[in-house]
Amino acid sequence: MDALVIEDVTKAFGSVQAVNGLSARIPPGSVYGFLGPNGAGKTTTLRMVMNIISPDSGSIQVLGRSSREGVAGRIGYMPEERGLYRKMKVTAVIAYFGKLKGMSRQDLTGAIPRWLEDVDLAEWANKRVEDLSRGMQQKLQFVVTAINDPDLLILDEPFSGLDPVNLELLRGIMLRLRDAGKTVIFSTHMMEQAEKLCDFILLINNGRSIIDGTLDQIRSRYPSNTVAVELAGEADFIAELPMVQGVECSGRKLEISLGEGGDPQDLLRNLVGKVDIRSFEVRTPSLHDMFVDLVRTNDA
């Protein structure tokens, strides 16, 4: 059973079509990334999943149910704009939300120190939320989201505002949760993080899905057409080869772009014996490149 099924969902705010016929299936036990530029409809989609707003049409099934009744306690949601009671103490805030999610006092006394330890906030347990830095509040917000050990975590821009150290920390926790069988859905426009983390990716633009699948599946649709070669010897003939479209030269490094249908292996065969090859690298397009390219072609 899929953790989340979104089927042909539409939502408009006045004349703005925020989400337009979006569909997605999110398998359990995976890390699933909602990617897209600002205003693409990521947050609106996640809010509809959380039943904070209701879709104009289409259906959403969370953990196999179409209503959130009965499964609310199995979902953890971290909104894009963080919200905690600023005057409350750290432990009290976690306990309050934990109780609202149905946790018992006993569960909480075990879980709170463990989680605070996990995110390096143990010393701050008795401080007020407003005394914490932005990054710390962010981690606290994550703890609040995950405190009841939900099967499905929905995180809206979880990395914004985190320094590299805390970013690694959060990434580690997310992977740990996935390995424990939880489903983690998050939205981001930080491609590097998505590339490192996601098992599946959904790219949204203008409220529509542009592409989705595993990173490898998506990459295979973008055949690599650039090869970086480091070599010694006379290299002028390379530009004349039939599969080559252009060559950019920087010192001993050549950046060779292949024409349509050009095979890197074919190029390699043509080079062997004619020049002294030091390195030969087929460039896979980065998610960032694909993202920018896809959004541009989609907008055009």
Binding site: A72, Y77, P79, G83, L84, Y85, R86, F97, G102, Q141
Partner: peptide, 15 residues
Amino acid sequence: EEKNSRVIEVILSSV
């Protein structure tokens, strides 16, 4: 205040 600080969104995910 709850509305402005968006605490409400976290709350409404369980209540």
